[in-house]
Design a protein around this nucleic acid. Sequence first.
DNA 1: ATATTGACGGGCA
DNA 2: GTGCCCGCCAATA
Length: 103
Amino acid sequence: MGFFQRVYRVVETIPPGRVATYGQVALLAGNPRMARQVGWALHQCPDPRVPCHRVVNRFGGLSDAFGGGCEEQGRRLSAEGVEVDDSGRVDLRRFGWRPACEN
DNA sequence: ATATTGACGGGCA
DNA sequence: GTGCCCGCCAATA
């Protein structure tokens, strides 16, 4: 299985109302240095079931290049209960995904 | 093959 | 927190 496919699998495991950073996804995918590649993987987004909108950068900022724009991503997150800042950012302290303590 | 780009991360200012 | 620089790896030109 390629790294990309693994990334998709990890992203799918992100619970609703939670957001994970590219670094987090890359780490769970097995390669902490491939944060950027995670970005491509999601950009390709060959599978619509992959909640790519739950993946944000280290600042919790939404992606400018998201399909449709960061507005769309922020809208999706807010629809899941994630509070999006006016600057298009999420509070990782509260909505950051914690695999070791999801609940 | 090399150079540039890119949905990034970390360190430093 | 934000901006700049460097490092990282894969895709594209």
